[in-house]
């Protein structure tokens, strides 16, 4: 299995590692919102990981975490500003969840484990793979919830997010167990 599929499928941030669940549950009420957050997370994760990887030898070990958070916060703010300027409708719906990407442990984990140690190539592939895995999870959850809303209105509400996400995770575990 190559590095991209490993990051996206075998170590899927949402379905396997259960990271980034707050935005996953909160913003998956429609496919459009899910897509918006997936794109925002991809830009922040990829941008921060590549920048950290490029300057990793200059970052002192003791202050690496504040440095990583500073880089992530900068990219998050850039994405937030871009959204407010060029995608205002989407911004009004999901701005809060774009802003809290900065606390998303999925992103800090990839930077601590990969970007701060590996070169640009491996970091980029890992970031894109992780982003693709997160995007797939949130889009599938968003599509399932939007489709279920027709006969099961609860699916669009917060409790529905837990129910549908729980069922999807159970499905992922069943399929995963077959492959192992």
């Amino acid at each position: 299995m190559n590095q991209f599929t490993e990051a996206a499928v075998a170590r899927n941030p949402a379905a396997v590692q259960l990271l980034g669940l707050c935005p996953l549950l909160a913003v998956s009420n429609t496919v459009a919102n899910a897509l918006g957050l997936a794109v925002a997370s991809t830009v922040v994760l990829t941008g921060s990981a590549v920048l950290v990887s490029a300057v990793r030898k200059l970052i002192p070990e003791e202050v690496r975490l504040p440095c990583f958070v500073l880089v992530i916060a900068t990219f998050t703010t850039l994405v937030n500003l871009a959204m407010e300027a060029y995608a205002f409708d989407l911004y009004q719906r999901i701005a809060l969840f774009v802003q809290i990407i900065v606390t998303n442990c999925m992103i800090l984990a990839r930077i601590e484990q990969v970007a701060s140690k590996e070169g640009l190539g491996r970091t980029l592939v890992d970031a894109l793979g992780t982003s693709a895995g997160f995007a797939a999870a949130i889009l599938i959850l968003g599509a399932a919830r939007e489709a279920l809303t027709v006969g099961f209105p609860l699916a669009a509400l917060p409790p529905g997010a837990f129910l549908v996400a729980g069922l999807l995770l159970a499905g992922v575990n069943v399929v995963g167990a077959r492959f192992r």
């Binding site: 970052i59 002192p60 003791e62 202050v63 504040p66 440095c67 500073l70 880089v71």
Partner: peptide, 11 residues
């Protein structure tokens, strides 16, 4: 000093 410098430059 190195830590402070790194954080200052990045900020």
């Amino acid at each position: 000093l190195r830590n402070v410098a790194a954080l200052a430059v990045l900020t």
